[in-house]
């Protein structure tokens, strides 16, 4: 599929959970750090709660491929219930990892992963978000988790650059920046690597 100097990430979420926003934000921040990036959701009739997919390619050279990602290095599952309906590990590279939003441990997830024996990471994104932001915005914790697990960006520079990006994005409501930054930091500490 892609050459090995491209990191490919596939996001699975449900409409309204912010998978697209997290995907575009990751592209934006990686771009700020001088990487070549692609961030694109798969579009169809959009509706709340329907399974959606989004993709990132992050590389040192411009990637010209414009297909969806079939053999990702990392899979992010924002909604645990998708494990029952979507083949989320389909095509996931052997040395890759899946990161799931769940209160369970990585070990507990294997029986639900259709034979996937590679690396599994978990994070209780809902709890972290509700504790810090007061509402369930699972995409921010998942973004932090995938950056931490993949190492595609340096943690320190990622946090600094995303804060800049938030300042633009939330120019009209700067009060949400602090909570989002705290959520990112907490999530990086809490993600469990199996």
């Amino acid at each position: 599929m892609a050459t090995k100097d491209v990191v490919e990430i596939r996001w699975h979420g449900r409409g309204g959970q912010g998978a697209k926003m997290a995907c575009l934000l990751l592209a934006d921040v990686a771009g700020l750090e001088g990487k070549f990036v692609q961030g694109f959701p798969e579009y169809g009739p959009e509706r709340m709660g329907a399974p959606i997919t989004a993709y990132n390619r992050i590389s040192e050279k411009r990637c010209t491929i414009h297909s969806n990602i079939y053999n990702p290095d990392y899979v992010v599952v924002i909604d645990e219930s998708l494990l029952d309906s979507v083949d989320v590990t389909g095509g996931l590279k052997e040395g890759g990892a899946i990161i799931i939003n769940t209160p369970s441990s990585p070990q507990e997830m294997y029986p639900r992963l259709r034979g996937w024996t590679g690396k599994v990471c978990t994070i209780d994104a809902r709890r972290i978000s509700e504790e810090i932001l007061g509402r369930n915005f699972p995409n921010t914790p998942m973004l932090a988790a995938v950056v931490k697990v993949s190492g595609v960006l340096e943690t320190e520079s990622f946090l600094a650059d995303i804060e800049e990006s938030f300042k633009h994005k939330f120019a009209a409501k700067p009060q949400v920046i602090e909570g989002n930054m705290a959520t990112l930091k907490k999530s990086m500490e809490e993600v469990q690597v199996g």
């Binding site: 990036v37 692609q38 961030g39 694109f40």
Partner: peptide, 12 residues
């Protein structure tokens, strides 16, 4: 330009 593939994808 290609709808979604180009119009909605963020790239450098």
């Amino acid at each position: 330009m290609d709808g979604f593939i180009t119009s909605h994808a963020i790239e450098n």
